[in-house]
């Protein structure tokens, strides 16, 4: 066995075991930690494929930021309760889900292996990935020339995501006021809120009447 095969077998089995753990563990914290194992395995596979920059990003962004965000939310919500996997509210959903997943696996394997690496037989249009530090330079070059529009759009996307996250997760105004420090402010806010609520009630009544 070549070194590449050994690395692939080890990283691949870590990936698959982690993926199974993500699906099968009952405690969300264990799920998140299994996900970290899978993400590290994927990072090793990226390195084996000479995608060094992506491997670094994978560890920093995915394992470092996204999973930590997951853990934060798990702790924030106090979801230390485990899911009862024995209850199946939709009858026959589990077996059907497994059948669907196996069908999906068969489908993707058929397509991927039938097509293989000779899609058109054409050589790369955007250039060779390169090796080592060369890979990072090439990726940056392509990103800022050929894909610069997409790059700019991702900046907009990230801004929208941050604004959306703040909008969804903010508390109502009244909850944020410290009553001891600002006595009376809450009552004042409640008055103005009553007025707006009256308005919406009137509107909804109007809708019902029509």
């Amino acid at each position: 066995m070549s070194v590449e095969s050994v690395v692939f077998v080890i990283a691949g089995s870590i990936c698959i075991v982690g993926a199974l753990g993500t699906v099968l563990f009952r405690n969300p914290v264990h799920n998140a930690l299994s996900l970290v194992a899978t993400l590290f395995g994927v990072a090793v596979i990226f390195i084996a494929q000479d995608a060094h920059l992506l491997a670094a990003i994978q560890v920093i962004v995915y394992a470092g930021a996204i999973v930590v965000l997951f853990l934060f939310v798990i702790m924030l919500l106090g979801v230390d309760r485990t899911e009862k996997l024995g209850i199946d509210p939709l009858g026959g959903q589990r077996p059907l889900a497994v059948v669907a997943a196996v069908a999906l696996l068969g489908l993707s394997l058929t397509v991927l292996l039938a097509v293989g690496s000779t899609v058109t037989g054409q050589e790369a249009a955007t250039g060779d990935p390169g090796e080592g530090a060369e890979n990072i330079a090439k990726l940056g070059e392509v990103l800022f020339t050929e894909y610069v529009l997409a790059f700019e759009v991702t900046a907009v996307l990230l801004t929208i995501a941050v604004v959306g996250a703040v909008m969804f997760s903010r508390q109502r105004k009244a909850d944020l006021i410290d009553e001891e420090e600002f006595p009376g402010l809450e009552a004042l806010l409640a008055e103005t809120e009553d007025e707006t609520e009256d308005d919406t009630e009137a509107e909804s009544e109007g809708v019902e009447a029509t």
Binding site: A51, L53, L54, S117, V119, E123, A124, A125, T126, G127, D128, P129, G130, N135, K138, L139, V142, L143, E146, Y147
Partner: peptide
Amino acid sequence: ALGDIGGQV
């Protein structure tokens, strides 16, 4: 496999 950096992008 195809020697194309587009996949990494």
